[in-house]
């Protein structure tokens, strides 16, 4: 079942971002293994997705070290973001669990 807006786990990524490309199978595996649904939103080729990322910009900037960047994960329920190239599955799990 698809989570409603405001309740979603979102992964913001860029099509040409190599770290996003590398992380993609990790995210796919995480979703398959845990049954967790993460909404994948590409931000360089979809203005609506980019706008949404900017809307959550404060939290994402904080997680990214000051600027908006991808790959970035945003939990709409907890308003918690994690960001960066070296995200292990356990960190994604904690973020998804709202920790």
């Amino acid at each position: 079942m698809v989570a409603q807006e405001g309740q979603r786990l979102i992964w913001f990524y860029g099509r040409e971002c190599p770290h996003c490309k590398a992380l993609h199978p990790v995210v796919d595996r995480f979703m398959a293994d845990t049954g967790t649904e993460i909404v994948l939103l590409e931000v360089w080729h979809d203005d609506k997705n980019a706008q949404l990322m900017r809307k959550y910009g404060d939290k994402i900037r904080e997680a990214c070290g000051g600027e908006l960047g991808v790959p970035a994960f945003y939990n709409e329920k907890t308003r918690k973001a994690i960001c960066g190239a070296r995200l292990a599955i356990d960190k994604i799990q904690r973020w998804a669990d709202g920790q």
């Binding site: 913001f12 860029g14 099509r15 040409e16 971002c17 190599p18 770290h19 996003c20 931000v43 360089w44 080729h45 980019a50 990322m53 900017r54 910009g57 600027e67 908006l68 960047g69 991808v70």
Partner: peptide
């Protein structure tokens, strides 16, 4: 598409 060689791992703000 955006008018500059912007980092593809960042995002423009407008």
């Amino acid at each position: 598409s955006k008018g500059g060689k912007f980092c593809p791992c960042r995002i423009t703000t407008g």
